[in-house]
Amino acid sequence: MLAYILRRIFQSAIVLLVVGLVAFSLFRFVGDPIDNMLGQERTQADVERLRETLGLNEPFVVQYAKFLGQAVQGNFGMSYRQGRPVAEILMERAPATLELAAVSGVLALSFGIGLGVFTAIRRDGFAANAIMTLSLIGVSLPTFLIGILLIYLFSVELGWLPSFGRGEVVDLGGWTTGFLTPSGLQALILPSITLGLYQMTLIMRLVRSEMLEVLRTDYIRFARARGLRDRAVHFRHALKNTMVPVITVTGLQLGSIIAFAIITETVFQWPGVGLLFINAIQFVDIPVMAAYLMLISVMFVGINLIVDLLYVMVDPRLRGDSARGH
């Protein structure tokens, strides 16, 4: 088991190296940061001097090696635009994104699994069919449109909820949280629904189809034949067996909630890392972009690792040690 985890961590490190390389080399094509930093009134000497200070004249491989060497020490360089350490800027922005992603993830998971089970058990019921039809909206409408529609309805027409920002936040030792103030909580509602709706409908449809599949199996028939209650059959026997594929997809989806919060953060002007990334692209702020991509890939890789470990927890057949005797 430990060997397995170590092997997975080693593989993860290789993935991160490759992602870093790809990200770093891509940025060579997004434009010259010097243009944005110096403006119109520059001389060729200024340009050369700045290139030299930023290390942009060195060969690509050297730049990448330096970047990696610094990155493992938690130093992602200075933002070209803000002139502050990237790590500091990211730390400042990360809580907003992580809180938003966490709320969206919880919403997506709880409603997705709950509704998925419901629509599978009441397969032919009116409510289940209505939910399935409505879920098409979640799957097919683009995120930004859902966000704009929600803003139009709840902020513009009804005036119930704020349309942008995080509201009041409380600083807890460097971590700013919106969970502790009423306005912070209110501000979370629309963005988290926007961000989580697609994942929720996806999880729901997946749980439903897996559940329908499992309900047809022999061991479910046998569980019924043993006189177990519907609740035990559905939740103890059936739901657990739907979990392996659900964990796979959910893990990847939670990763993408964090990674692609960009759109939601733009629509709601949410001060998270996604918005930071969009601004960094506009300014060709390479250190920020690189750090953001590295951060996201660390999260993806981490989530994948957790997913693999969850498989083993859920499915005893994947555990080497329990197969004793045969």
């Binding site: 022999d218 061991y219 046998f222 569980a223 043993r226 026997h237 657990k240 067996n241």
Partner: peptide, 17 residues
């Protein structure tokens, strides 16, 4: 009434002891 099914490989839930 107890029941015994045909295929023992599929009539036990794989995730429960």
């Amino acid at each position: 009434i107890g029941m015994v099914f045909q295929d023992p490989l599929t009539s036990l839930n794989p995730l429960l002891t």
